[in-house]
C-alpha cells in the first residue's frame, strides 16, 4: 500500500535524553522514520528499548531533546494548545497501560460518548449514539449493556484494553498509534480484535503504528517492521524480509526467543 509520494509522518534524527550527569539515559537515539499514508508499521524491541518513548514523541506528549518531526510534509508545530488539539484530530493512541489512560471519575459511557462528540456527532439522537457505541463494543467482544454505568476501575485489564480499542472504531483517526494494544487480551479475543482493526484500516485507509514486543503480532499485521535496540533502529524493512530473513543478531535473538509451535524452541540461548 506504500505510495511513493511524501510521507505522512517522519522523524529525522530524533533523540530523547532523560536525566543528566551520571543519571543520563538516552532512551531514543538518533532515530529516522517515514510513515506513508495507509501503511501499517510495527516497532519491535525488548523492554526498555525506547518504544514507548518514541511513540510519545510522535504523539506530541513528550518533547524530543533534538531532531525534527514532519507532518504532511511540513515541520510539525504543536507549541500552542490549539495546534496540539488540531494535531490530535489526526493522530490517536491506544496506550500500553490502560489504567493510566482514563479519568477515573468518568463513567464508561462518557468515554465512548466523548469520541462521538469529538467526531462532530454531538447533535445525533440518543438512540443513534447508543447504536454506534454498541457496534464499537461488539468489534472488540464487549457487551455495551454490561458496561453502562460502570467506572473504568471496575473492568479487568483486558476489558480496559478492549475499551481503548473500541474508541478507535468511533474516532476513526487518520493515524493510529497502538502501544502494546493487546498485551492483556487472550489470544482468542486478540484474533477477533486484530481482524476488526485491519478491516477498519482497509475501510478508511487508516495508517497504523504498532508498538510491541510480540513479533508474531508484528508479522501478522504490518507492512514494515522496525527493530529497536537501546534506543536505535538496528534493522528495518518489509515484514517478510525482517522477520523471515533477519540480518542483525539482535533481531535473530528476539525471533529465537519467541515460543515456537512448528519448530523446536531453543532454551539454551538465555
Amino acid at each position: 500500500m506504500t505510495t511513493l509520494t511524501q510521507p505522512l509522518l517522519s522523524a529525522r534524527g530524533v533523540t530523547k535524553v532523560f536525566g543528566f550527569g551520571r543519571q543520563k539515559n538516552t532512551a531514543v537515539d538518533n532515530v529516522d522514520l517515514d510513515l506513508y499514508e495507509g501503511e501499517v508499521i510495527s516497532i519491535v524491541g525488548e523492554s526498555g528499548s525506547g518504544k514507548t518513548t518514541i511513540s510519545k514523541i510522535l504523539l506530541g506528549l513528550l518533547t524530543e531533546t533534538s531532531g525534527e518531526i514532519y507532518f504532511q510534509g511540513a515541520k510539525r508545530d504543536i507549541r500552542s494548545h490549539a495546534k496540539k488539539q488540531e494535531y490530535w484530530k489526526n493522530i490517536q493512541a491506544i496506550f500500553q497501560d490502560p489504567f493510566s489512560s482514563y479519568n477515573i471519575f468518568n463513567k464508561i459511557d462518557s468515554v465512548l460518548l466523548d469520541c462521538i462528540n469529538m467526531r462532530g456527532g454531538r447533535s445525533l439522537p440518543r438512540e443513534k449514539k447508543v447504536e454506534m457505541m454498541s457496534e464499537a463494543c461488539s468489534f472488540v467482544n464487549l457487551k455495551f449493556e454490561e458496561l453502562t454505568n460502570k467506572y473504568p476501575f471496575e473492568l479487568s485489564g483486558g476489558q480496559m484494553q478492549r475499551l481503548m480499542i473500541a474508541r478507535i472504531f468511533l474516532l476513526k483517526p487518520k493515524i493510529l498509534l497502538a502501544d502494546e494494544p493487546t498485551s492483556m487480551i487472550d489470544a482468542c479475543s486478540r484474533a477477533t480484535i486484530l481482524d476488526e482493526l485491519m478491516h477498519l484500516r482497509r475501510e478508511i485507509g487508516m495508517t497504523i503504528i504498532f508498538i510491541t514486543h510480540d513479533i508474531g503480532l508484528a508479522y501478522y499485521v504490518s507492512d514494515k517492521v522496525y527493530i529497536m535496540e537501546k534506543g536505535k533502529f538496528v534493522e528495518s524493512g518489509s515484514a517478510d524480509s525482517v522477520i523471515l530473513h533477519p540480518k542483525e543478531p539482535y533481531t535473530r535473538r528476539l525471533l529465537n526467543d519467541v515460543p515456537k509451535i512448528y519448530e523446536e524452541w531453543d532454551l539454551t540461548t538465555v
Binding site: C188, A218, L255
Partner: peptide, 25 residues
C-alpha cells in the same frame, strides 16, 4: 479448535491468513 486457530507465531505464510476468531462473548 478456535483457540488453537488464533495462535500467532512469526512463521512464513501467516500474513494475510485470516485467524479463526470466535465471535461473541
Amino acid at each position: 479448535k478456535g483457540l488453537m486457530g488464533s495462535i500467532i507465531v512469526p512463521e512464513q505464510g501467516l500474513r494475510d491468513v485470516k485467524l479463526t476468531a470466535i465471535p461473541g462473548v
